[in-house]
Design a protein around this nucleic acid. Structure first.
Lengths: 124, 124
DNA sequence: GGATTATATTCCTATATGGGAATATGTCAA
DNA sequence: TTGACATATTCCCATATAGGAATATAATCC
């Protein structure tokens, strides 16, 4: 298999920096037309349309026709799975204490992998 | 250009479900040898090694030699940028109020795009 | 030495990407 | 109708992927 499609899920969709930029712009304020995004982000129009297509397929944005414009609207809820997953690791950097513990553990690991005599198995 | 390399940053690295699995396993407990990950996740050994290679290149894991084993260790701090970015959108689903506001805004958008012209279509 | 175990690397392939350029579609207005 | 504008789509291409299979490297033990 090749790499999973960008439209597979939110994780793949937000891997692209420009798509995150688009999301960021849509987050502050009302829905935006494609042209507004083009102007704001200075990205060629076809590129913006394509990126919006990806985001729409994943459900991160939705469209509404307004005359000859298309208003793209953020549906941030689709980002929740990403947040849920990464939030688990918040403790690794949020507390000073955690960071100290981190370093201590690493030191211990490096030390043990240096000291240990040959032939050694870990749990499970 | 083609798609950005998986080793570009944390965003790209964690797009792969199996790499997230590896991270999850490394998170609960001490460093793991490759063989342990193979057994736990039931992923072929070469695949695990390759995924670990990506994670190491991005800095999400680090290695320590222990005899003929390599102990991989999580360095979760590298996930902070992801958390920082997605945390911005937490408000969209964490508070009931926010969700209500969301819906109201969407309705308004759809309405406005419905009122103006006769032409009307639903999202694809 | 040879055998065994643990891990990494190489070779292969199908597949999709993002960008650019050009073009198509769609919508308005006169 | 025509023309101007907004957006989407198509075509092309260089690039890298993830997986599988096979092999290479490395450490350990006999």
């Amino acid at each position: 298999m090749a790499r999973a499609a960008t439209t597979t899920d939110a994780f793949n969709a937000i891997a692209e920096p420009r798509r995150r930029q688009i999301i960021d712009v849509l987050a502050r304020g009302r829905p935006h037309a494609v042209g507004e995004l083009v102007q704001t982000l200075r990205i060629p129009q076809p590129a913006v349309s394509k990126h919006l297509g990806v985001l729409r397929k994943v459900g991160i944005v939705s469209v509404a026709k307004e005359g000859q414009h298309r208003l793209y609207r953020l549906n941030a809820t689709e980002l929740k799975p990403v947040h849920d997953w990464v939030k688990t690791y918040e403790r690794y950097w949020s507390h000073q204490l955690a960071r100290v513990k981190e370093r201590a553990e690493r030191k211990a690991t490096e030390r043990s992998s240096k000291d240990k005599p040959p032939g050694q198995k870990k749990e499970e």
